[in-house]
Structures are given as structure tokens and as C-alpha cells.
């Protein structure tokens, strides 16, 4: 009999061991900037582009609005992946927000790397309002990547 993930982890002492399951559906949090990436997602929708339903979009006014705190909170509470998406460099609605976002993301990524956590679960992509197809492609690619990585072990860790 196949053990369900829940029972296996609750009784197991090393609940951090990630397991790959056939029926694993990644949960990805997407912080999308209002002016470019959210519009890009909209375009992907109105263009009826098919994509995985795994991304939970959260609209933010600018990619620089994303406090790394929000990302770590999602990451530590079991989000399998976190995507930040904003306007291409040079195209920020607020002029330079995305450049600052990129620096903050670099800090986040390096901190996570330095701790031996899975930095691959975090992604920063530039997606413009006209790039519906690119939005679809990023979501598909990222979902596949996370699917291969398996569930984020933080989701079952009880001693965080």
C-alpha cells in the first residue's frame, strides 16, 4: 500500500527528507508586477495559452515592492517555488524599481545558497505586458523544474 505523504512524515523522525511523488503538484507563489508581468499573465489568459495551474499569482505594484521577507515567509511555509516577475530592465513603470529588486533578489539568492538551501526554488524573470507567450513559457519551465526538485521539505518540517 502506498503511504500518503502526510502519515509518512508525521511519524518519521527525519521529516526533512524530500520525496518525489508521482502525484506531486508543485505550489508556486508568483509575485507579478502590476504594469508588466501581471498584464503579461492576463494576455496569456486572453490569448487562451494553456499552462500549468500551479502558479498562485499575487499582484504587486512593482517587483521592488517584494520584500525578501515575503519570499522567505512563503519559502519557509512550504511554497515549492517562488517567482518574482517584473518589467524588463529599463522599462520599469517607476523608472528603476526593477534594478533595486534585482539587487535584493541577489541578496536573497546568495543568503539561501550560503545556507545550503535550494536556491533553485527562487526565480526572477522579466516579462513585459506584451509577452503572454513568454509568461506561459516561464510558468511551464519553472513548474517542470520544481516538479523535478520535488516538494519543498520546509512544507513538512515541524521545527522551523
Amino acid at each position: 500500500m502506498k503511504e500518503t505523504a502526510g502519515t509518512k512524515h508525521r511519524s518519521s523522525s527525519n521529516s526533512w527528507s524530500a520525496e518525489i511523488m508521482d502525484d506531486f503538484e508543485p505550489r508556486i507563489i508568483g509575485f507579478l508586477c502590476n504594469w508588466c508581468s501581471y498584464a503579461g499573465a492576463d494576455l496569456a489568459g486572453t490569448s487562451r495559452l494553456k499552462m500549468s495551474p500551479n502558479l498562485v499569482p499575487i499582484k504587486v505594484m512593482c517587483s521592488s515592492r517584494v520584500d525578501p521577507e515575503m519570499v522567505t515567509d512563503a519559502f519557509l511555509r512550504g511554497a515549492d517555488g517562488v517567482l518574482i516577475a517584473g518589467c524588463h530592465p529599463g522599462d520599469c513603470h517607476y523608472d528603476k524599481g526593477n534594478y533595486y529588486a534585482r539587487r535584493r533578489f541577489a541578496v536573497l539568492k546568495k543568503v539561501v545558497e550560503s545556507l545550503g538551501l535550494e536556491a533553485e526554488r527562487l526565480r526572477l524573470s522579466w516579462i513585459s505586458a506584451s509577452e503572454g507567450a513568454r509568461f506561459q513559457q516561464v510558468v511551464e519551465e519553472f513548474t517542470e523544474k520544481i516538479r523535478k526538485l520535488g516538494p519543498n521539505p520546509t512544507g513538512k518540517e515541524t521545527l522551523l
Partner: peptide, 17 residues
């Protein structure tokens, strides 16, 4: 001494337990 990617969670949890 940085743990390999993916091994960090376990050691972090241990360290801060």
C-alpha cells in the same frame, strides 16, 4: 563548510533547535 544545496535545511534546523 557551506552545506550542499538541499542539505542546508536539516543542518539549519539542528543548529537553531
Amino acid at each position: 563548510d557551506i552545506p550542499a544545496p538541499g542539505d542546508g535545511l536539516r543542518s539549519l534546523v539542528s543548529l537553531f533547535s
